[in-house]
């Protein structure tokens, strides 16, 4: 009997007291789930490394691939792991037809890919969340209008949508500006093609939260709709949005790569990963395989790890699966 008593006490002792924020976080289900999944840990590490590499590219990369002054044509097509006999430069992943270091190009390229990805996701997220909140909170004709537009847009593949938007925006700009504003046009095109899923998720969550009694309590006090929306509803609907955002980041990176690969994205002078792949495919069968392979692998790893992270986040934050 006494042993049984001891055991009960020990179970009671494990019951959480009032730990600090860090402790609470470290003991949360999210961290627990993270620690138990090697794939997720690996994906996190890879993502962090790639983000850091992109962020610190100017300090890591041996050359600035966007600066024509730093390129030596004489070093063109140097194979990987080779030191050039002409300039003495070491090419870790080889060089391309311009004598551009593939490693540096990948670092700078993922910088652009990530920049476009993040910016497009934020664009889509803000637009989708705003429209979803409006549709869910106000209902009526605004809801009908926004959601029907969303339905129509959903019937087209988003890459097609991005292509269309990209083409329309460029149509309004003088040709000379195309290269300069390419990155902004890309962000808008990808962002516009992707707001629907945020809007849908936010609208659904808003309608659920709106009918909850804590919102009614705020309405009884007489809190204006604007305050109810921003103080109560918005913070409570953000969780699904952040999950979609993480998965959306991988999709946006791929969308950017696809557009650039198709030749409508970043110009060859400011190559993103997609542009590098497009350029590289010309040399695929002529023996200079590294120009295509390494940017391709980099894109694959980046998109895959971000996607894995997003999937995991969705699972761990979904109350239904817990």
């Amino acid at each position: 009997m006494s042993q049984e008593v001891d055991k009960r006490n020990s179970v009671a002792n494990i019951a959480p007291t009032r730990p600090g924020r860090l402790r609470t976080f470290l003991e949360s289900d999210i961290v627990y789930s993270w620690k138990r999944q090697p794939v997720v840990i690996l994906a996190t590490l890879v993502t962090l490394v790639m983000f850091a590499a992109a962020l610190f590219a100017p300090w890591i990369a041996p050359q600035n691939p966007f600066d024509p002054g730093q390129l030596d044509l004489i070093d063109a097509f140097t194979p990987p792991m080779t030191t050039s006999e002409f300039t003495g430069n070491f090419y870790l992943l080889g060089s391309d037809s311009q004598g551009r270091d593939v490693f540096s190009a990948i670092l700078y390229g993922s910088r652009i890919s990530l920049l476009v990805g993040f910016a497009a996701v934020i664009f889509a997220l803000v637009m989708g969340t705003a429209l979803g909140l409006l549709a869910g909170f106000r209902g009526g004709w605004r809801d009908a209008l926004i959601m029907r537009i969303a339905d129509v847009q959903l019937t087209f593949p988003s890459i097609l949508m991005a292509l269309l938007i990209f083409g329309v925006i460029r149509g309004f700009l003088p040709r000379s500006m195309h290269a300069e504003v390419a990155i902004i046009v890309l962000i808008i095109a990808i962002g516009l093609s992707d707001w629907v899923q945020y809007a849908r998720a936010v609208r659904g969550a808003t309608m659920v939260e709106k009918s909850k009694e804590y919102v009614q309590a705020a309405r009884v006090i007489g809190l204006p709709a604007r305050k109810i929306l921003f103080l109560h509803i918005l913070p409570n609907v953000l969780r699904p949005v952040l999950v979609i955002g993480t998965i959306g980041l991988a999709l946006a990176i791929i969308a950017e790569a696809t557009l650039s690969f198709l030749g409508v994205g970043m110009p060859a002078t400011q190559p993103s990963l997609g542009t590098l792949i497009r350029v590289g495919q010309d040399y695929m069968f002529s023996g200079e395989w590294w120009i295509l392979l390494f940017p391709g692998v980099a894109l694959l790893i980046l998109a895959l790890s971000v996607n894995l992270l997003g999937d995991w986040l969705r699972d761990v934050l979904n109350p239904k699966l817990r």
Binding site: K212, E213, Y214, Q216, A217, R219, V220, I221, G222, L223, P224, A225, H232, P235, N236
Partner: peptide
């Protein structure tokens, strides 16, 4: 149809208690 401070003089005089204790408090 009225919210905000214009109705505060009346609204502050009554309050409501709801049924579901799990939905009536903002979880965040």
């Amino acid at each position: 149809s009225r919210t905000g401070r214009q109705t505060a003089s009346v609204r502050k005089r009554f309050q409501m208690i709801f049924q579901d204790p799990y939905a009536s408090l903002n979880p965040l």
